[in-house]
């Protein structure tokens, strides 16, 4: 239809004309999601590693728990943190509700089980001998861990990208915890939800395009990276 063509053209125009409001929204998205990932990656990787390599009672139960957490909808995570951070909640004194910090908390919690579950699978795919060889050749635990991560890098990178892709496109928890405040907690998905509710589709499409371009870039990068890995074999 002529209408949708013109909306798309307008969206592209918005993106490349440097519309400040639009780019502020994109900035919030990347800032919040990147912070969330940076916070959750180190502990998640360590847990994933321990689950894959160490043998201790309750290990299988923990794996099941993390796999279950994968299926928890974002709004439930949002609601949980909302209750914790709300005035009447346990952490109400922190006054964090409707701030970027609250969004970071929610997104970190969302990405955590993805990183653990996919990270666990990635580590499991790497032979236990990798760790043992590193250790017997004199590597300390940190260096040996780093070595195994290097061996498992394709799987770990896939875990990282999936987690990032999920949280940057997630609307429920961001809306509840951030409150969609313009120039502060309005990110790409909450803005799309809002623009659609206002009946203004072009900005929504422009922001959707950003997400699609991001997904495409990450996937291409991963493909290229994996391809390179295979070639050197």
């Amino acid at each position: 239809m002529d209408d949708s063509t013109s909306i798309t053209l307008e969206a592209i125009h918005l993106l490349f004309s440097g519309d400040t409001e639009l780019w502020a929204i994109i900035g919030v998205s990347f800032q919040v999601s990147t912070t969330a990932i940076l916070i959750s990656v180190p502990p998640a990787l360590i847990i994933a590693f321990i689950l894959a390599y160490a043998d201790f009672p309750g290990r299988r139960l923990l794996i099941s728990i993390f796999n279950t957490l994968l299926a928890v909808p974002a709004v439930v995570i949002g609601l949980t943190f909302y209750l914790l951070l709300s005035r009447q909640g346990i952490l109400g004194d922190w006054r964090l509700l409707f701030t970027q910090s609250a969004m970071v908390m929610g997104q970190a919690a969302l990405s955590f089980p993805i990183l653990v579950a996919m990270g666990h699978a990635a580590f499991q795919a790497i032979d236990k001998r990798a760790w043992e060889t590193a250790r017997t050749l004199g590597a300390n635990r940190i260096r040996a861990f780093y070595t195994v991560m290097k061996e498992a890098r394709f799987g770990l990178l896939a875990a990282l990208f999936s987690a990032y892709g999920r949280i940057i496109a997630e609307v429920g928890a961001s809306m509840m915890l951030g409150g969609n405040i313009l120039n502060y907690t309005r990110n790409i998905p909450t803005a799309i939800a809002l623009e659609t509710s206002k009946g203004e589709f072009s900005q929504g499409i422009a922001l959707g395009l950003v997400l699609i371009i991001l997904a495409f870039t990450l996937n291409t990068f991963l493909q290229y990276f994996q391809g390179k890995g295979h070639l050197s074999n």
Partner: peptide
């Protein structure tokens, strides 16, 4: 012992 012993697996592991 760690500093003075090296163990080789039956099928030694090679890093990337």
């Amino acid at each position: 012992l760690r500093n003075s012993v090296v163990y080789l697996h039956q099928q030694p592991y090679m890093f990337e």
